[in-house]
C-alpha cells in the first residue's frame, strides 16, 4: 500500500461567489515530486495555501499524514511562496537564523544547515547582505532557502523557477531532485512551465478554472492524448486560419486542430504522413506558409487538448 502524506478531500474555495478552487480531490505520495500545472489564475496557489493550512477552505478538508492540517505541527511543512517574502532589512544569514529559531532548530544544527543551504543555492558570498540589496534571482533563492531551514518532510514550492536565469533554474531543478532522491522529501511544486513539470514531476495534476482536469505521470499524460506528432504552421495571411481549421477538422486521421498564437497547431498520430495532403489543399487555395515545424508531443499539447487554449500568460 502506498503512503500518502497529503490528502485533499473535496477542497473548495469561494471568493464571494467565484470558485477559485472547485472540489479538488487528490492524494500525494510520500517521496514524490508532485506538480501542479495550470495557467495563471487556475487556482494553484489557492490550492496549496489550503493544503498547508494558511487558507481556510470553504469546503472540504486537508489531511496531512492522516491528521487534519489545522492540528498538524507545522514543522513537517516548508512553503516557498510565489511572491518574494523576505525581511528587507535582514541579511540572508539573519533571516535563516530567525526562521530556524522560530522552528526551534537547535543552534549548532541551525548554523550548519544555514551554511549548507546558502552554499547549495550559491548565496554564500551574500550571507551578510540584506535582502533588499540582493538581485531578483538571489532573492528567489533566499526565498527558497527560508522554506527549507527546518528540514521539512513536505516541501511546497509555488512557482520556484519564476525569475531565475537558465543557469539558476538548472541549479534549482537539481536541488529539487536531490531533495527527493537524497533526502526522501515529498515535493509539491506549481508551475506553468510544461517543460519544468515534465522534467521534475513524478505525477502532474493539470488544473484550470479551479478544477482538476487530469492527474497522472508525464508519460501517461502524453500517451493519453495519443502518441504522435505535432505540426505547427504559420500562414502569411492569418485571416485564412479559420478556413484551414475547418478543413482540417473534417479531415480524416487528424486528432485536433487549433489556432494558438497565430499558429495552426495540428496533432495527429502520423502528422508527417498527412502533410502532403494538407500542402496540396493550401496550394489549391493559394495560401502560403510562413513557417512550418514538426515536433514530438509535449505536455503543452496535453494542456491544449484539455483546455482548448495555450497557456494564458
Amino acid at each position: 500500500m502506498e503512503e500518502y502524506v497529503i490528502e485533499a478531500q473535496n477542497l473548495s474555495k469561494d471568493y464571494s461567489g467565484f470558485k477559485a478552487v472547485d472540489g479538488l480531490n487528490l492524494k500525494i505520495k510520500k517521496g514524490e515530486v508532485f506538480g501542479f500545472l495550470g495557467p495563471n489564475g487556475a487556482g494553484k496557489t489557492t490550492s496549496i495555501s489550503m493544503m498547508v493550512g494558511l487558507l481556510r477552505p470553504s469546503q472540504g478538508k486537508v489531511l496531512i499524514n492522516g491528521e487534519n492540517v489545522e492540528k498538524v505541527d507545522k514543522i513537517v511543512i516548508g512553503i516557498c511562496p510565489q511572491e518574494l517574502v523576505l525581511w528587507e532589512n535582514l541579511t540572508c544569514m539573519e533571516s535563516l537564523k530567525l526562521m530556524g529559531d522560530m522552528y526551534e532548530v537547535p543552534g549548532e544544527v541551525l548554523k550548519k544547515r544555514a551554511e549548507k543551504l546558502l552554499q547549495d543555492l550559491f548565496l554564500m558570498d551574500k550571507a551578510d547582505t540584506v535582502a533588499s540589496k540582493l538581485s531578483g534571482g538571489m532573492k528567489r533563492r533566499l526565498n527558497l532557502a527560508l522554506a527549507l531551514i527546518h528540514a521539512p518532510n513536505i516541501v511546497v514550492l509555488d512557482e520556484p523557477s519564476e525569475g531565475l536565469d537558465p543557469q539558476s533554474r538548472r541549479v534549482l531543478w537539481n536541488f529539487i531532485k536531490s531533495l527527493r532522491d537524497n533526502e526522501g522529501k515529498t515535493v509539491i511544486l506549481t508551475t506553468h512551465l510544461m517543460d519544468e513539470a515534465d522534467r521534475l514531476s513524478d505525477r502532474i495534476a493539470i488544473m484550470d478554472h479551479g478544477k482538476l482536469l487530469l492527474l497522472d505521470n508525464p508519460t501517461n499524460l502524453k500517451k493519453e492524448i495519443g502518441e504522435g506528432d505535432v505540426v505547427e504552421m504559420k500562414l502569411n495571411d492569418p485571416e485564412k486560419n479559420n478556413q484551414i481549421i475547418k478543413y482540417l477538422e473534417n479531415m480524416h486521421l487528424i486528432e485536433s486542430a487549433h489556432v494558438i498564437d497565430n499558429h495552426i497547431n495540428i496533432r495527429a498520430l502520423n502528422a508527417v504522413g498527412l502533410l502532403p495532403q494538407i500542402m496540396r489543399y493550401l496550394e489549391d487555395n493559394n495560401i502560403s506558409i510562413a513557417d512550418l515545424s514538426i515536433r514530438q508531443n509535449t505536455l503543452e499539447d496535453v494542456f491544449i487538448e484539455l483546455t482548448g487554449t495555450g497557456l494564458r500568460e
Binding site: G53, L54, I77, V85, M99, M102
Partner: peptide, 17 residues
Amino acid sequence: ETGTLARLKMSRMRSFD
C-alpha cells in the same frame, strides 16, 4: 502585507512570541 507574517505563522511561533 509582505507575507512575512504568513511565514512566521507557518512556524512554531506563537502570538505571544
